[in-house]
Design a protein around this nucleic acid. Structure first.
Length: 279
DNA sequence: ATAGCGCCCTGGTGGC
DNA sequence: TGCCACCAGGGCGCTA
């Protein structure tokens, strides 16, 4: 599942392979990925435009597109969310498409940006600045945990008086941007905090530890090119090299103390932790 | 207001 | 061996 480190890895891949390129053609193989946007509007806002840069906000990729006449002001933004199974690949435009191919943008230079999505939960739309600003999930999104000034202070503010368990609280994108199931479990393990603790009852020292753990885990995962637990690959088709310590390892020994890791359901999500190391 | 659920979807798995 | 019910999960929208 693409979370912050995976989306950031894709962003970097697109910066290298797609920035500055003009989009020459669009193939919509599965309109479901447009999530209701009119196909002609989508096409119209993309074909002939140039990828100005590739930015990320939480788990969203935002790609400003420009026209030759207005080279500094984006005329539209590609807004992409991969949800659970979405993939973005830079492939030779002549290469055969995969089984779950939903959409292709042909790029100047012979390659194509392709969107594959087994579950078609992912979204790719071409939006104006106004439409983008109206997306609630983006407008209300919390701070970027890898920003230099984010830390225990910012997190403590968000957790104050919350009675929800800390694990589902970390998954709330309004609390902190980009953390999903993998890195919530990993961060809580690294910070030694039990996932069922009510968020508002964490001592300030624990919140500091947790914020530091989130930053460390995310930084290490970005360095490793993300985690491949299911079918995540980067834009060149390369899997992530980050290895989670507890995520998806229920019943296996804790890497710190050897106790068998416990798996529970919390807020509807599978949660793995160590009863010895996390309290 | 907020928490909890169903929904979207399909490959993999466990049971019979 | 084959079939089928069931599970996983991000984020949104609905309900209580």
């Amino acid at each position: 599942m693409p979370e912050l480190p995976e989306v950031e890895t894709l962003r970097r891949g697109l910066e290298r392979g797609a920035r500055g390129r003009r989009i020459t053609d669009v193939v919509i193989a599965n309109p479901k990925s447009l999530k209701g946007q009119n196909e002609d509007v989508f096409r119209e806002r993309i074909v002939g435009r140039t990828i100005q840069s590739v930015t990320r906000r939480g788990k969203y990729l935002l790609i400003p597109l420009t026209t030759p006449l207005l080279a500094d002001t984006p005329s539209a933004f590609l807004c992409i969310h991969l949800k659970m199974r979405g993939q973005l690949l830079l492939e030779d435009a002549a290469a055969p498409v995969g089984k779950y191919h939903c959409l292709s943008l042909a790029l100047e230079g012979g390659r194509a940006l392709r969107f594959h999505d087994m579950w078609t939960w992912g979204e790719i739309r071409a939006l104006t600045a106004e439409e983008l600003a109206a997306i609630e999930g983006l407008a209300a999104m919390g701070a970027e945990p890898l920003d230099p000034d984010w830390g225990g202070g910012s997190l403590a503010e968000m957790l104050a008086a919350r009675r929800t368990p800390i694990k589902p609280t970390l998954l709330d994108q309004r609390v902190v941007a980009g953390v999903g199931n993998i890195y919530a479990d990993e961060s809580l393990f690294r910070a030694g905090i039990h996932p069922e603790r009510a968020a508002g009852t964490l001592a300030r020292s624990e919140v500091d530890r947790l914020a530091e753990a989130i930053r460390t885990v995310l930084r290490e995962a970005v360095e490793g090119g993300g985690t491949t637990s299911e079918d995540y690959v980067d834009t060149e088709g390369v899997p992530g090299r980050y290895t989670p310590r507890v995520y998806d390892r229920g019943g296996k020994p804790c890497p710190a103390c050897g106790t068998l890791l416990t798996r529970i359901r919390l807020g509807g999500r599978g949660t793995v932790f160590c009863t010895q190391c996390q309290s």
